[in-house]
């Protein structure tokens, strides 16, 4: 690996990861809301099986996820404005955030708090396995991308 060519300290690794995590969490929440609640109608708005804690957790995650998209996009624009974006770290953060959100949704919201299920009137096991795998795989890829060298966008060959 060639050493970074530009002036040192220009890229912002930590800020890039944070930006990615916020966008990743937000996109995962958005996909959950739009695809599974609105388009497929697999999830129910509220099936009344869950506890008060589940309701509060769901509300906080719902509110956090779309606020995170807005904040993440503004942070990304700010990184570009400073020419400090480290793309590999943005992707790492994004996949980690999306995967972690999906895992939390699948394990805590669906199973532990029983807020609502992936789908109703079917054998749940394959759906739950797919749901958890859909979280675990991006999470692992994201964690791999967090390691290893990464260069800021300004220093990448064009």
């Amino acid at each position: 690996m060639a050493p970074p060519a530009g002036p040192p300290g220009r890229g912002r690794s930590g800020r890039s990861v944070l930006t990615g995590v916020l966008i990743g969490v937000g996109v995962a929440g958005f996909v959950d809301e739009v695809v599974f609640h609105q388009l497929l109608h697999w999830h129910h708005f509220y099936d009344r099986a869950g506890s008060a804690a589940g309701l509060v957790s769901d509300g906080l995650f719902h509110a956090f996820s779309w606020t995170a998209v807005v904040v993440g996009l503004f942070l990304l624009a700010d990184l570009h404005r400073r020419q400090a974006t480290v793309p590999r770290r943005v992707w790492a953060g994004g996949l980690t955030g999306a995967g972690a959100f999906q895992l939390y949704d699948g394990l805590v919201h669906h199973k532990l708090l029983e807020l609502h299920q992936v789908r109703y009137g079917v054998d749940l096991l394959p759906y739950d396995l797919a749901w958890v795998a859909g979280g675990a795989v991006p999470l692992l890829v994201g964690l791999v991308l967090l390691r290893g060298p990464a260069r800021p966008l300004a220093d990448l060959p064009r």
Binding site: G59, H62, A63, T67
Partner: peptide
């Protein structure tokens, strides 16, 4: 904002 939005959702 997040706390208020969560409150509205709940």
């Amino acid at each position: 904002l997040v706390v208020l939005a969560a409150g509205h959702a709940v």
